[in-house]
Structure formats: C-alpha cells, structure tokens
Simulated assay, not measured.
Amino acid sequence: MHAYLYLLIAVAFETFGSSCLQASRQFTRLWPTLGVIFGFAGAFWFFALVLKTLPLGVTYALWSGIGMVLIAGSGWLLFGQKLDAAAMAGIGLIVAGIVVINLFSSTARH
C-alpha cells in the first residue's frame, strides 16, 4: 500500500510543480521558479520509491492519468482555463482507464 501512497504524493508534487511552471511565466518569476524545482524534485523522488514495488508501465500510466486530471483542475481553479465538452469527455475516459487498471489488472497489484 505504501507504493500507492507514494504515487499519490509524487502526483501531488508534480501537480504543484506544473502549476508553478505556469505561474513562473517562463522562469521569469523567482518564487514560482523555485516551486518548479521543488515540485519536480519531490515528484521524481517519490516516483522512484514507487518503482521499487510497481512496474514502470502501469506506474507511469497512473502517474500521467491522475496528474493530467489534477493539472486540468489546477488550470481551471488557479488560472481560469476553460474545458470544453470534448476535454471533459477525454478526462472522463482517462479516469475510467485508471479505474480499469486498478480494479481489473493483475499488473497493478504487488
């Protein structure tokens, strides 16, 4: 179970880092730029811990899927970015894929 907790922590760091990347305005603002470095360093540290237990392919699929959903939400909440129906449908399919992997794939179990 630690692997999934570490994965969620890694995704949280990645979401923070990506949000700071948007706020840094191409690395022209100091504090958001430092947030990028901190966020991605934490993300890769915890991602490496996850890879001790879970296989890379499934882990990366979960990381990218969960991260994309959170980043879309971050863009909407923090930066006023809009999502159209097609984007929402695509995000729904990604969430469905994450659920399928976790409920039905023996690859995701450790």
Rank of each mutant, 00 (worst) to 15 (best):
residue 83 L to F: 09
residue 74 S to A: 15
residue 42 G to W: 00
residue 59 T to S: 14
residue 72 A to M: 05
residue 19 S to Q: 01
residue 84 D to T: 09
residue 30 L to H: 05
residue 10 A to G: 05
residue 89 A to G: 12
residue 88 M to H: 13
residue 51 L to T: 04
residue 86 A to H: 10
residue 77 L to F: 14
residue 9 I to H: 05
residue 24 S to D: 07
residue 102 N to W: 13
residue 29 R to I: 05
residue 1 M to Y: 04
residue 110 H to R: 13
residue 51 L to P: 01
residue 26 Q to V: 04
residue 49 L to Y: 08
residue 53 T to Q: 11
residue 8 L to E: 07
residue 15 T to L: 05
residue 4 Y to P: 02
residue 85 A to H: 11
residue 20 C to S: 10
residue 82 K to G: 12
residue 15 T to R: 06
residue 46 F to V: 03
residue 84 D to L: 10
residue 79 F to T: 05
residue 78 L to W: 14
residue 66 I to P: 00
residue 30 L to C: 07
residue 40 F to C: 02
residue 73 G to C: 08
residue 89 A to N: 15
residue 106 S to P: 00
residue 52 K to D: 11
residue 67 G to R: 01
residue 55 P to F: 15
residue 73 G to P: 03
residue 94 I to P: 03
residue 8 L to F: 12
residue 71 I to Q: 11
residue 82 K to W: 15
residue 66 I to G: 03
residue 17 G to N: 07
residue 92 G to I: 00
residue 59 T to H: 10
residue 28 T to F: 08
residue 41 A to V: 06
residue 21 L to D: 05
residue 67 G to D: 07
residue 24 S to I: 01
residue 11 V to K: 10
residue 97 G to F: 08
residue 98 I to H: 03
residue 40 F to I: 06
residue 82 K to M: 14
residue 2 H to T: 06
residue 9 I to S: 03
residue 66 I to N: 03
residue 102 N to R: 15
residue 9 I to Y: 05
residue 35 G to D: 05
residue 106 S to E: 11
residue 26 Q to G: 13
residue 54 L to E: 12
residue 58 V to D: 04
residue 41 A to N: 03
residue 29 R to V: 10
residue 30 L to A: 09
residue 82 K to I: 10
residue 93 L to S: 11
residue 100 V to K: 15
residue 60 Y to A: 04
residue 68 M to Q: 14
residue 29 R to N: 06
residue 6 Y to E: 08
residue 33 T to R: 00
residue 109 R to I: 01
residue 20 C to K: 02
residue 72 A to C: 12
residue 90 G to K: 05
residue 96 A to I: 13
residue 29 R to D: 00
residue 73 G to N: 14
residue 67 G to C: 08
residue 83 L to A: 13
residue 36 V to N: 06
residue 65 G to P: 00
residue 70 L to E: 00
residue 46 F to R: 04
residue 66 I to D: 05
residue 99 V to N: 14
residue 48 A to R: 14
residue 47 F to Y: 13
residue 57 G to N: 08
residue 12 A to Q: 02
residue 51 L to D: 03
residue 42 G to D: 08
residue 103 L to I: 13
residue 4 Y to D: 04
residue 107 T to K: 13
residue 11 V to A: 08
residue 106 S to L: 11
residue 66 I to A: 04
